[in-house]
């Protein structure tokens, strides 16, 4: 695969890594200084826009912050993550939305994640939109920025990176 086809492939790979719990492979898809942002809703129709003055569900500007999450769910020390939920990410409507610079592309997509919690035998579906910004990295692409819009933000007990 070449060009934007392989950029699109990274977006799909990312979802697959999460469902297969290949955490290190998932991490390796991001740049070291990646932005990973899940804005909160400010009111019924508006998302928060500025992470320095408004609340986010998650706001990271460093891949090392994603490592914290992986360590937590792999630790067997987190009651919310033990046993870990099983997930299936469904992606659709993947479209390139721009090319902000050389070797740099942006995509949008719609997602849903079906989550099953073995400890309660309950399932839930989180859903929303992704915006990915990818940078060319040799033969492939890395995620430099991912913005996750969570449409159903009235959360059943919890959510986590593998649910989004």
């Amino acid at each position: 695969m070449t060009g934007t086809a392989s950029a699109r492939d990274v977006i799909e790979q990312e979802a697959i890594c999460l469902d297969e719990r290949r955490w290190q492979d998932w991490l390796a898809l991001f740049t070291e200084d990646c932005v990973y942002w899940v804005p909160a809703w400010k009111d019924d129709d508006t998302l928060t826009a500025d992470p320095q003055t408004e609340l986010s569900h998650i706001y990271y500007i460093d891949r090392a912050a994603l490592e914290d999450r992986i360590i937590r769910v792999s630790s067997n020390l987190s009651p919310a993550s033990t046993p870990l939920a099983r997930t299936a990410h469904i992606l659709g409507g993947i479209r390139q939305t721009g090319a902000p610079g050389p070797g740099r592309v942006t995509f949008r997509s719609s997602w849903s994640t079906h989550v099953f919690w073995p400890q309660s035998n309950l399932s839930h579906t989180f859903f929303g939109r992704y915006e990915h910004e990818l940078v060319e990295d040799g033969e492939s692409w890395l995620i430099a920025r991912k913005v996750i819009t969570l449409q159903n933000d009235y959360l059943p007990s919890m959510t986590d990176f593998y649910c989004l």
């Binding site: 500025d50 569900h57 998650i58 919310a80 959510t159």
Partner: peptide
């Protein structure tokens, strides 16, 4: 914004339902 950002990052890290601590409370 810099000061508010300090509050927000600490809050999100610990207290959010997508944070590193609160989900463990809720499940318990």
């Amino acid at each position: 914004p810099g000061e508010r950002g300090m509050r927000l990052r600490a809050f999100e890290d610990f207290y959010n339902a997508a944070g590193l601590a609160t989900p463990d409370d809720s499940v318990v």
